[in-house]
Each structure stands twice: as structure tokens, then as C-alpha cells.
């Protein structure tokens, strides 16, 4: 009972969009798919949903090829939001659900419920184009889940949402998970992934660079993160002189350090105490996903600048 992506490859002209991507998503888990623009996230999702056929490799759900499952197994929220601009919100939600075989009356009832939950009931009979982007996105999410799919595939669901709506969407995610749905979503907002995901995969230029449970991935570098606050703050030079330690984020409240694989984080504490400083805070943690990502792929922003113009257009 899981979603298995096995060694998929896809080439568009000269661009090898996917180059042997393999990962699994356990049923009922929230799975984050991380990567810069053009890394291959959308292409992978389109292959999972059967819009595109991979050159090689296979995708199965519960040991059967994805194509054999009825369409209502799948819920898809594309990255580019898609609604009929001049059609009323409730009407198009009912239309989408009816394509999956949901009866119109049932779809109408559920859609009204969901619109109320997302606090957009008053827009039910408005044309979609008259809604704000955030509200359109909420409608889009309802369209994705209205037919109660087993697997939700969402491309950048949080992009462009304000903090209030991000919170609303997160709670809806968790409710979906509690209902036993399997959620796969892509994002480059790594904090969201860290907060929500049971498992993640990081993809870079068509290749998977890390995958597993969120904790496994975070630990995969072997580094550890130390957060330290002492009475001697402001003078950080001594930290740099410690072996296998690197200051990653000097801060007012605390300083974040990276302790190389194999080194003992307790050495930092001992050194601080040895200097005669008072230690207010000492915390050993796994590195954040962002740190892992930066280490494995490079800075997100740089990637976006170099990759976005060329690759995204070439991977329909």
C-alpha cells in the first residue's frame, strides 16, 4: 500500500528532465518534494498522475500501476492555479467533482461545507476571476479534495499565500492526513516541509540527492547543529578556532554552529565553560532541512536565478 516511483527517466529534447528518480511514499504520510524551480518536481508529479509517460521506469500505487486506478484516486493541484475565470465558484467545484463521478448534489453539499471552512462562503456564486489570488487558491484546494481522493498531489500549494491562509491550509493538510489520505506536495519553502512532512525527497537537476523520513534526511549529512548563547556573546572569534566547528548563523539571541560529522558537540560547551563565560543556552539538534538542502544542492536563491529561465520552459 504505498506509492512507489521506480527509476523514472524523462527527456524533453536536449534536456534530461529526470534521470533515474526513485522514491517511495508510505500510505497516510505527508511527503515533501523539495527542489529548485526546474529541478524536475512538476515533471515527476505529472508522471505520477499519468499526464506524461516516462521514457523508462514505473510508478505504482498499492502494487498496481497508477494507470489502473480510477481517476478519483487522485487529487491534483497544479502549480499554475487553474479555474474557469468566468464561471461561478460553486458551479465549477461541482463540475470538477462530477468529472470524478461524484453526484452533483453530494458535490454541492460538500463544496458548500468546505467554502464555509475556508471562510469564503460569500464567494460561492461569484465568478472566479473576481476572487483574490489567495481565495482562488483556497477554491483550488477544495477542487483538489472534493472527490475524496486517496492520494493528493500538490504542486507548491503554499506559494503566494499570506500567513493566515498558510495556517488554514496547514490545518486542512493535517485533517486530510488524519482521514488517511496520502499527501505529496512540492515546495521550496523548507520550513513548511520541515513542519509538516513525515518524509521528504530532495531533487536537483533531475536527480534525487536525498530521500527518506524527515529525520533521516536531516541527519544524512552527519552534521549536527548547536545553538549557543553565553554571556560572552559578540565575541565569536574563539568559536571559529575550535576544530570541526563553523559558525553558520551569528544571531542576537543565540549563535548557530555547525559541528562536522564525527565531532563531539559537547566540546563546544566545554570550551565555553572553559573560557569562564556563563552559558544561558546550549542545544544540540539535527540540522534544518534548509541547511541540508544548501549543503546538498547549493543556495536556493542562486539556483532559482540560474535555472528558472531556461529549464522551466523546457519541461512541460
Amino acid at each position: 500500500m504505498s506509492l512507489e516511483i521506480t527509476d523514472i527517466r524523462k527527456r524533453f529534447g536536449d534536456v534530461q528532465a529526470l534521470d533515474g528518480v526513485t522514491f517511495g511514499v508510505a500510505p497516510g504520510e505527508v511527503f515533501g518534494f523539495l527542489g529548485a524551480n526546474g529541478a524536475g518536481k512538476t515533471t515527476t508529479m505529472r508522471i505520477i498522475l499519468g499526464f506524461l509517460r516516462p521514457d523508462t521506469g514505473s510508478v505504482s500505487w498499492s502494487d498496481r500501476p497508477v494507470g489502473e486506478w480510477p481517476r478519483r484516486t487522485w487529487g491534483y493541484m497544479p502549480e499554475e492555479r487553474g479555474l474557469y475565470p468566468r464561471m461561478e465558484v460553486l458551479e465549477q467545484l461541482v463540475f470538477f467533482a462530477s468529472l470524478y463521478g461524484v453526484s452533483r448534489s453530494e458535490a454541492r453539499r460538500d463544496a458548500v461545507d468546505w467554502l464555509a471552512r475556508f471562510r469564503i462562503s460569500e464567494y460561492a456564486n461569484r465568478k472566479a476571476e473576481s476572487l483574490s489570488k489567495g481565495n482562488q487558491q483556497k477554491v483550488q484546494f477544495i477542487a483538489t479534495i472534493l472527490h475524496e481522493p486517496d492520494v493528493l498531489v500538490m504542486d507548491e500549494p503554499f506559494a503566494g499565500l499570506d500567513p493566515v491562509n498558510v495556517a488554514l491550509l496547514k490545518s486542512a493538510f493535517l485533517e486530510m492526513r488524519d482521514r488517511g489520505k496520502t499527501l505529496v506536495f512540492s515546495t521550496h519553502q523548507l520550513e513548511q516541509a520541515e513542519e509538516l512532512c513525515d518524509s521528504v525527497a530532495i531533487i536537483d537537476r533531475g536527480r534525487l540527492v536525498a530521500s527518506g523520513t524527515t529525520r533521516e534526511v536531516k541527519r544524512s549529512t552527519g552534521h549536527q547543529t548547536v545553538r549557543l548563547a553565553t554571556s560572552g556573546d559578540g565575541d565569536l572569534d574563539w568559536l571559529g578556532s575550535l576544530p570541526a566547528v563553523q559558525v553558520t548563523r551569528p544571531g542576537r539571541d543565540y549563535t548557530e554552529l555547525r559541528v562536522a560529522a564525527g565531532a563531539d558537540p559537547q566540546a563546544v560547551l566545554k570550551a565555553a565553560l572553559g573560557r569562564g563565560d556563563e552559558v544561558f543556552r546550549f542545544e544540540v539538534a539535527d540540522p534544518s532541512l534548509e541547511e541540508v538542502f544548501v549543503e546538498r544542492v547549493g543556495a536556493l536563491d542562486v539556483e532559482e536565478q540560474t535555472l528558472a529561465p531556461t529549464s522551466e520552459g523546457g519541461t512541460p
Binding site: 478519483r72 492555479r81 470538477f96
Partner: peptide, 15 residues
């Protein structure tokens, strides 16, 4: 129209 409003991908998942 369905392509440019990107609604195509939504209905393509259903039908």
C-alpha cells in the same frame, strides 16, 4: 481558453 487559464491540468486529472 482552458489552456491559458490553466484549468486544463485540473480537468485533465479528472477526465
Amino acid at each position: 481558453e482552458e489552456k491559458s487559464s490553466r484549468v486544463m491540468e485540473v480537468i485533465l486529472n479528472a477526465a
